[in-house]
Structures are given as structure tokens and as C-alpha cells.
């Protein structure tokens, strides 16, 4: 089939403002990934088109973009999911994710996003000496299960840049940073949960979340982002210890 692309272009070196550019590709198959088609445009038609990518199978988080109005990883969207069944052609609109400054074409400045990430102590803290026998700290499969979902995050920013609260106020830490904090708050081996909860209880923390739910469908890793945020809110209210215990009794997928 034919694919008609509308791509949001902007190169501050040469353009005064962003504009839309159209490209057409022939011989497009339903199983083609949008990333492959962007490569075809770049490699066959216009080498100036700029976008990030690396792994090409949805695990490195490089290529979150707004495709037909929704945040997705270009390498994880097949043409078939954008075209009507049996269609002769498909129209695909691609723009950069919203809420972060555009550097060029589909590439945004990720620094504000990573600054929020770094702000939530996204690292393991345990100041006790490790077990005397030189072996691993023990953790039961049940304790491990309650934070499994948030360990999957690849920091692609699809959630944060689909969030109206973040668009309205870029100082909100955003869903991705909260997911990262969740990963440690609910880890039985970690000792800094209360500090993280203090950070997230501040005005630019979790309470800016209005439960609009854009983040969860945006997540290419199928993390239940809104649920994770809700659990962090509850942990602030109940204390991390009690919230952890509650999640344990209700199972990993409360």
C-alpha cells in the first residue's frame, strides 16, 4: 500500500518556525514499523530528517513520538494498527512529543525530563552491611512481585509528555519519575522510602497528578502508571511500611 506521511519539521538553524512536510512511500506492508518507514524517508528521500532511535524493538526508549495524535514508540507501531483493514493507503502524522523543547524535527531536549528523574533518588539505598556470609540479601518472591511492574520502565517519556498536568506546568516531576520512585519505595531491601515520599509530597510532586489517565495507555511497556502514582499517594498518607504490607496481602497486582 501507499503511506502518506505528514511530519512536523523544525531546524532552528534554518527555519524561523516549525512546519509540516509531506512524504509519500510506495510498497508499504502492514507489518512495517513506523520506524522503518521513517528510515526509508531519511535514507531514500531526505537525509535531513532527524529522529532518535537505537534498538528498533521497543526496549531502549529512544523513539517516543506523537503518531496520529498519540504518544508511541515508532519502532513498536505497525502500519496495520494505523490503517483500516484492507486499505490501499494510510496517512501517518508524526510530531515530537509535547512539553519538552524541540532541538530538531522529532528530537526534543530530554534534560528537563532526566532532571525530574534524578530528583526522586532513583537509586537503591541500603546502608546496612551486606550479609556476613558474603551472599545476596534475601527477598521473597512475594516481596519482589509488588514492585515488578515499575521495574520495566525504559525512561522513554511517553507518559510524562502525554500528561496535561505536565504540559501546564513543567516543574511537575511527572509520571515517569514517580514510577521510578515507586520501584524503590516498594522494594523491601531499600531504606530511603520516606525520603522519596517527602520529595513527592512537595508541591511539584504527586499531588499535581489529577488522575487524567493519559499516561497508562501511553506506556509502551504496559506499566500501570496511574496505579503506581495512586499507590505512591497512598504511601504518603499511610507510610511506606504499611502500604507495602497492604500490597503484600493483596498480591502484586493490587
Amino acid at each position: 500500500m501507499k503511506a502518506h506521511f505528514r511530519i512536523r519539521r523544525f531546524n532552528p538553524e534554518t527555519n524561523a518556525k516549525p512546519y509540516w512536510q509531506d512524504f509519500t512511500l510506495d510498497n508499504v506492508a502492514p507489518a512495517d514499523r513506523v520506524l522503518e518507514l521513517l528510515h526509508r524517508i531519511k535514507w531514500e528521500q531526505d537525509g535531513t530528517l532527524a529522529f532518535r532511535r537505537s534498538c528498533a524493538h521497543g526496549v531502549c526508549g529512544s523513539d517516543a513520538m506523537r503518531i496520529n495524535g498519540r504518544n508511541m514508540l515508532a519502532c513498536k507501531v505497525l502500519v496495520s494498527s494505523l490503517a483500516a483493514e484492507g486499505a490501499e493507503s494510510v496517512t501517518i502524522q508524526v510530531e515530537p512529543i509535547l512539553g519538552l523543547p524541540v532541538i530538531k524535527d522529532l528530537i526534543v531536549d530530554m534534560e528537563p525530563f532526566f532532571a525530574h528523574y534524578r530528583a526522586v533518588m532513583p537509586y537503591f539505598v541500603n546502608n546496612d552491611p551486606p550479609p556476613a556470609d558474603g551472599r545476596e540479601r534475601r527477598q521473597s518472591p512475594e516481596e519482589r512481585a509488588i514492585f515488578d511492574d515499575s521495574t520495566k520502565c525504559i525512561l522513554c517519556a511517553a507518559c510524562t509528555t502525554s500528561c496535561p498536568s505536565f504540559w501546564a506546568n513543567g516543574s511537575y516531576v511527572g509520571p515517569a519519575a514517580i514510577v521510578q520512585a515507586h520501584r524503590f519505595i516498594f522494594d523491601s531491601r531499600d531504606q530511603a522510602a520516606e525520603q522519596r515520599l517527602d520529595i513527592l509530597a512537595a508541591p511539584d510532586g504527586v499531588w499535581r497528578c489529577r488522575t487524567i489517565f493519559n499516561c497508562t495507555p501511553a506506556c509502551p511497556r504496559e506499566i500501570e502508571v496511574t496505579r503506581a502514582i495512586g499507590e505512591v499517594k497512598l504511601a504518603i498518607q499511610m507510610g511506606a511500611e504499611r502500604m507495602r504490607a497492604r500490597k503484600m496481602t493483596r498480591g502484586g497486582t493490587e
Partner: peptide, 22 residues
Amino acid sequence: ISAVIELEHLGLPFDRNPDGTI
């Protein structure tokens, strides 16, 4: 052996056996 144990000490969330080991 020590390298994997060290990763665990750095927080790596390995899957666990019922006895809590990696």
C-alpha cells in the same frame, strides 16, 4: 560469583527462589 552478588547488593531486582535467594 562475587560480581552477581555485588549487583544484588547494588539493588538489582533479580527474580527469587522461595528461600529468597537469586
